[in-house]
């Protein structure tokens, strides 16, 4: 595009701003993480990140985030479906409630969940009776991550479902498909790219989540200690290089996962033969 012949003015200015902004806000901090890590030699770096306690935290952080995003994908789709397809009293209220985990300060969410699920909390006491311990276990972390991730799925799937006309379902039904077949072969393929996007967003958020998790997690090493907490631990001991080493692995892993999800999405979109 040329600035002289284009109809839209200010191409150079806006592109320059975009690059500057991205550099300052995104690239610089990321580069700093790598730069600080380089203060460690390769051997030290491997020592830090292969420490069993650190490995356990990685497993927990990524495992719980994936599980939470998967749960959100299923139930987020269901929620979006209900909000789009049916009208019922209080629908607008329910619709507004979806955004609550977005808006709530994470520490508030964390305290609320802990109060609820702690052994002396309303739900915690009852669940303890069933032999189920939620607070201060990995299960508690999962609950917190599911809570903060749900709006991402609902809000990405909702608009896609809204543009999905009932005509497609009617066509499928007139061709003899039952409800399950209509969902499996017609609706799901249509919304799948959006569900995957929602999943990716929920996952990205969950991996880095701190505030809502630390209260309910209990932070027992090897059991319920998440990676961000380890990083803070290192920082508190003035081991900045160690902290950034742990962070680097997390950064690379998250980036790789998002890349895979993006590729999946591009593949799904191509297969969907998106119109115009």
């Amino acid at each position: 595009m040329s600035a002289h012949t284009g109809v839209l003015p200010g191409f150079r200015l806006t592109l320059g701003y975009t690059i500057l902004y991205l550099s300052l806000i995104v690239l610089l901090p990321v580069a700093a993480v790598f730069g600080k890590t380089l203060e460690l030699g390769w051997g030290e770096f491997v020592d830090v990140v292969s420490n069993p306690r650190v490995l356990a935290a990685y497993r927990l952080s990524f495992g719980a985030a994936l599980a939470a995003a998967a749960i959100d994908a299923v139930f987020g789709l269901l929620l979006a479906w209900v909000l789009v397809r049916y009208s019922f009293p209080g629908k607008r209220l329910v619709d507004a409630l979806i955004d609550l985990p977005f808006a709530l300060p994470t520490a508030v969410a964390g305290i609320a969940l802990t109060a609820l699920y702690a052994p002396n909390g309303w739900l915690g006491g009852w669940l303890a009776g069933l032999g189920l311990k939620v607070a201060f276990t990995p299960l508690g972390i999962l609950v917190a991550l599911v809570f903060i991730g749900i709006p991402f799925v609902v809000r990405t799937v909702q608009p896609v479902l809204e543009e999905f006309e009932p005509e497609f379902e009617e066509a499928a039904a007139s061709l003899g498909a039952c409800r399950w077949q209509v969902f499996r072969h017609v609706i799901l393929p249509h919304v799948l790219p959006a569900v995957v996007t929602g999943f990716a967003l929920a996952f990205a958020r969950a991996v880095g989540e701190y505030g809502s998790v630390i209260f309910i997690a209990g932070n027992l090493p090897f059991v319920s200690e998440i990676v961000p907490l380890l990083i803070i631990g290192q920082l508190e001991q003035y081991d900045e290089a160690g902290a950034t080493a742990i962070a680097t692995v997390m950064l690379v892993a998250s980036f790789a996962l998002l890349l895979v999800i993006n590729a999946l999405q591009a593949w799904a979109a191509r297969r969907g033969g998106k119109e115009q």
Partner: peptide
């Protein structure tokens, strides 16, 4: 057999 004005072909 029902044929819709906007075809309603399954895009995927």
């Amino acid at each position: 057999g029902f044929v819709f004005q906007h075809y309603a072909l399954f895009r995927h």
